[in-house]
């Protein structure tokens, strides 16, 4: 879902860069206030964790494989703003080191996989947990729903940006992107649920961290 440079037109680039800069700026402010710059080493190691976790592929139907985005997981464990910060750093490093996603397209990529994915993942999780009550089962289901929703909505945002840039018509790109990612989202959901169940079983205190 990493959009390269050249796919988006100047108007879309400018809009998404402005929105993402605002979002990331706010995340920085909130992280500074609530965490202090002292917890930065921890955030850095967790950003490296998302990076490393993306190297583990999982099988999807039909012999293809996907890998986690990780935004929902980060948001559930640390809170949406922390997740925006971590995902932005991961995306910046991916763009600069691996050329995975463009430099000007960074605004759009941070918006899709950072802001949209973190917030949708976090609030879907909270919604499920508040409806079903605080329990192991509700947390796992919430994790699945949050992760699926985060991947799905991020792909919808990506499709909208491509269509607005005139790369391909909305009627084609939206079902294609959303359809593929509805499938990948199932994988992401199962993985996120699995990770949460392991964390709950071994270090449940980590899920009680103060969210930012």
């Amino acid at each position: 879902m990493h959009i390269p440079d050249g796919f988006l037109n100047v108007a879309t680039v400018a809009t998404t860069c402005a929105v993402s800069a605002g979002g990331v700026g706010n995340a920085v402010r909130i992280a500074n206030r609530k965490l202090g710059e002292k917890h930065v080493p921890l955030m850095g190691v967790l950003a490296a964790f998302i990076f490393a976790a993306q190297m583990l592929n999982f099988p999807i139907a039909g012999g293809t494989s996907g890998h986690v985005i990780g935004a929902a997981l980060a948001a559930i464990l640390l809170g949406p703003w922390a997740s925006v910060l971590i995902m932005s750093c991961v995306l910046i490093a991916q763009s600069l080191i691996f050329q995975d996603g463009g430099l000007l397209a960074l605004g759009a990529n941070i918006f899709n996989m950072g802001i949209v994915a973190s917030f949708s993942g976090y609030y879907l999780y909270r919604l499920v947990v508040s409806i079903m009550g605080e329990s192991r089962r509700s947390q796992l289901i919430g994790g699945f729903v949050g992760a699926w929703g985060s991947v799905f909505l991020a792909s919808v945002a990506c499709a909208l940006e491509l269509a607005l840039s005139g790369v391909s018509p909305l009627a084609v790109v939206l079902p294609a992107m959303a359809g593929v990612h509805a499938l990948i989202g199932i994988g992401e959901g199962l993985i996120t649920g699995g990770v949460l169940s392991l964390v709950l079983a071994t270090r449940a205190d980590l899920l009680k961290l103060r969210k930012i």
């Binding site: 002292k38 917890h39 080493p41 921890l42 955030m43 850095g44 190691v45 967790l46 490296a48 964790f49 490393a52 976790a53 583990l56 592929n57 999982f58 099988p59 986690v68 997981l73 464990l77 994988g187 199962l190 993985i191 996120t192 649920g193 699995g194 990770v195 949460l196 169940s197 392991l198 964390v199 071994t202 270090r203 980590l206």
Partner: peptide
């Protein structure tokens, strides 16, 4: 299997978190 990958990522998260705490 999916479950194995999930457990690996979970273990990786706990190890990373504890490493982060130690580094800090």
């Amino acid at each position: 299997r999916m479950r194995t990958v999930a457990n690996m990522i979970g273990t990786l998260f706990i190890r990373s978190y504890e490493r982060g705490e130690r580094v800090y």
